[in-house]
Computed example of a mutant assay.
Amino acid sequence: MFGALAREELTQALVELAYRQRGDAAADESAVASAVDAAVASAVDRYFLVEYTPADGADGDEAPDPEPLVTVGPVAFPALPAAADDLPHILDYPTRSVSRGALARSVEGRLRGDAARAVAAENDARIEHLLDVTYDLEAWAPVDVAEIRERLDDARSASDPETG
């Protein structure tokens, strides 16, 4: 729906949506913004959203954006959340196209790094999550992350007393 947004744009849109959904109820805007920032950070960590830094002019702009943009990630559902009918009206920001190939390579690189850190830390919960992400990523973009999946699966097997 929006291509890619700066984090601040996404935060402002979600704060506005929260205000509209609450109606006249007074909302502490800074508390809502803080909660939205935390939710966006969690969504990026879990690959529901991904950060994208466009190359010079690659997204149709004359100059690159100074900060990473946020766009839909491989584990996101392709539907608007409940009660988000106002989002298209709130998201009055320039539409930025996203180079799907560059985005896929960026996400693959990030996944590779996250997998290495999860394996090194023996973080079983993160390893399980990243295993799921490998399947979602291959369905989402034309990438082959079988090598990453194999490394994660080996680490999971090694930590499981029944299989390792």
Rank of each mutant, 00 (worst) to 15 (best):
E8H: 13
H89G: 13
F2N: 01
A39D: 06
P81Y: 12
L10I: 05
A79V: 08
F2R: 03
E138R: 13
L49A: 00
V32W: 00
P68Q: 08
E51R: 07
R156H: 10
D85G: 15
Y135A: 12
M1L: 06
V32A: 03
P64N: 09
N123P: 05
A18N: 05
D154L: 06
D124V: 09
D37N: 15
L14Y: 04
R20N: 04
N123T: 08
D132R: 12
S159E: 01
A125V: 07
P94L: 01
G73W: 00
V119A: 11
D61Y: 12
P64H: 10
R126S: 13
D114S: 07
F48H: 08
L131T: 14
E162D: 14
T134Y: 08
G73F: 00
D28P: 10
D61E: 14
A116P: 00
A4N: 04
D132G: 14
S106N: 07
R7G: 15
I127M: 15
Q21F: 01
T163W: 09
D59V: 04
A43H: 00
D45T: 15
A13F: 10
E51K: 04
A27C: 12
V145T: 12
A41D: 15
P74K: 08
E162T: 13
A35D: 06
S159I: 06
P68D: 06
T134Q: 10
E150M: 06
L152H: 09
P64A: 14
R110P: 02
G164R: 10
L87S: 05
E8R: 14
A26V: 13
P66M: 03
H129P: 02
A141N: 05
R22C: 11
D92W: 09
I148P: 08
T11M: 13
H129V: 03
D124S: 09
V119S: 05
E162H: 11
D124A: 12
E150T: 07
D154K: 06
A84R: 05
S30I: 13
A102C: 02
D61H: 12
V44L: 07
V44K: 02
A6D: 09
A125C: 03
S34M: 05
R7I: 11
P66D: 14
H89S: 14
D59S: 09
A31W: 04
D136H: 14
P54C: 05
R117M: 07
D160N: 15
D85A: 14
A120K: 06
E9F: 09
E108S: 13
D37V: 01
G113H: 10
A84P: 04
A158G: 03
S42E: 15
